[in-house]
């Protein structure tokens, strides 16, 4: 190591730290696209809107329960929902109701909803 000048070692060391800092910042930018992708794919894959829409359609069905029963269309509309869900949404859907019960002074019907699209399964019993 003869004739080598050892001045400025702190400057060299700080230069190294700055380089490492920049390296980690670049790593964070590099990962950001991947983070956005996994989030977006998670949102796209989870059928939140499908399930909400199915629930509101089933509630529409029970809103119209009386007229549909009078005209004899209850089974038809139920079959529409079940078969179109399978054909167009790739989802196994089934729903049924029990006899109306007294819930806090109101006569409500327990409605059980089943939804399964191969990835997400959803079951609930709601008094409607």
């Amino acid at each position: 190591m003869a004739c080598m000048n050892e001045d400025g070692q702190w400057i060299v060391l700080m230069g190294l730290l700055a380089a490492l800092g920049l390296f980690f910042l670049a790593l964070i930018i590099n990962q950001s696209a991947l983070v956005g992708q996994t989030t977006a794919e998670g949102v796209l894959e989870f059928p939140k809107n499908d399930i909400r829409d199915l629930r509101s359609e089933i509630f529409d069905y029970y809103d119209d329960y009386g007229p549909l029963q009078t005209l004899g269309y209850l089974d038809d509309v139920e079959e529409d929902i079940v078969r179109i869900s399978l054909e167009r949404k790739n989802a196994v859907v089934y729903f049924w109701d029990g006899p109306p019960q007294d819930v806090s002074g109101r006569l409500l019907r327990p409605v059980t909803i089943h939804y399964y699209n191969g990835v997400t399964e959803y079951d609930e019993t709601v008094y409607y």
Partner: peptide, 26 residues
């Protein structure tokens, strides 16, 4: 693709979709 269920009341004389009966369409 976005979808929405619509429930149609029975309507005599309707010729579109599955005809006059009450129905759920997507």
């Amino acid at each position: 693709r976005v979808t929405r269920w619509v429930q149609l009341d029975s309507q005599p004389g309707r010729t579109t979709y599955a005809g006059a009966r009450a129905q759920a369409v997507l």
